[in-house]
């Protein structure tokens, strides 16, 4: 039979595993979008009677925060790979992530103040629960970011695999948010 040696490195393995994990997460969110699509297509008007469209200000700020944090993380990763340890971009990523969570919280407050409670029908249910589920994953993502903290220390160990995987997860969450922004808030 074939005399091939399988030349998989640790990096290959890590990115393979991350790919499978992201497929799983993507399927979770895809199911949510499917639910949304079904309600949206079925209803005669959207938002349903008695509701207004949600103003775009808060969701747009959220989008800006999460996108900028992704860019900041890319910066951090590039510098790290060039061995130029840079704390600024790392902390900037975290701060922007906190900013995202803060604006999400503002959004929930706004919804509740304007009478769009979680129990007031499918429209409200979707707005609340989908943003909750996403925010829950953002919290997971932030824990993953904190998991990269040892990379800031000046030591010999190489954390580039970890950083690249955490980065993939973080960008994934950004992309999901953009989908939600366009699908749920913009249209």
């Amino acid at each position: 039979m074939k005399e091939a040696t399988l030349g998989y490195t640790d990096r290959d393995r890590a990115s393979l595993a991350m790919t499978v994990a992201l497929v799983s997460f993507a399927m979770l969110f895809a199911s949510l979008f499917l639910t949304y699509a079904v309600y949206r297509v079925r209803s005669a008007m959207w938002p349903p009677m008695g509701f207004d469209k949600i103003p775009l200000t808060l969701p747009s700020i959220s989008s800006a925060f999460i996108l900028l944090s992704s860019f900041s993380f890319i910066r951090f990763q590039r510098r790290y790979e060039k061995k130029a340890t840079n704390k600024t971009y790392y902390y900037l990523t975290l701060i922007l992530a906190l900013g995202f969570l803060f604006t999400q919280n503002q959004l929930w407050n706004y919804l509740n103040e304007t009478g769009v409670f979680v129990e007031s029908g499918t429209f409200a249910s979707i707005l609340h629960s989908f943003t909750w589920i996403h925010a829950g994953h953002v919290v997971l993502g932030m824990l993953a970011l904190i998991f990269c903290l040892p990379a800031l220390r000046k030591n010999k160990k190489d954390y580039s695999i970890r950083i690249s995987n955490v980065g993939k997860f973080w960008h994934f969450l950004g992309i999901i948010w953009i989908f939600m922004y366009i699908g749920i808030f913009l249209f």
């Binding site: 639910t35 079904v38 309600y39 079925r42 209803s43 349903p48 009677m49 008695g50 979680v118 129990e119 007031s120 029908g121 499918t122 429209f123 409200a124 249910s125 609340h128 629960s129």
Partner: peptide
């Protein structure tokens, strides 16, 4: 737990119908 209306239809859901 939170009283959303994803799977409640008809009279059970007051505004907007779940399925």
């Amino acid at each position: 737990v939170f009283g959303t209306h994803f799977f409640l239809a008809g009279a059970a859901a007051t505004q907007g119908t779940g399925d």
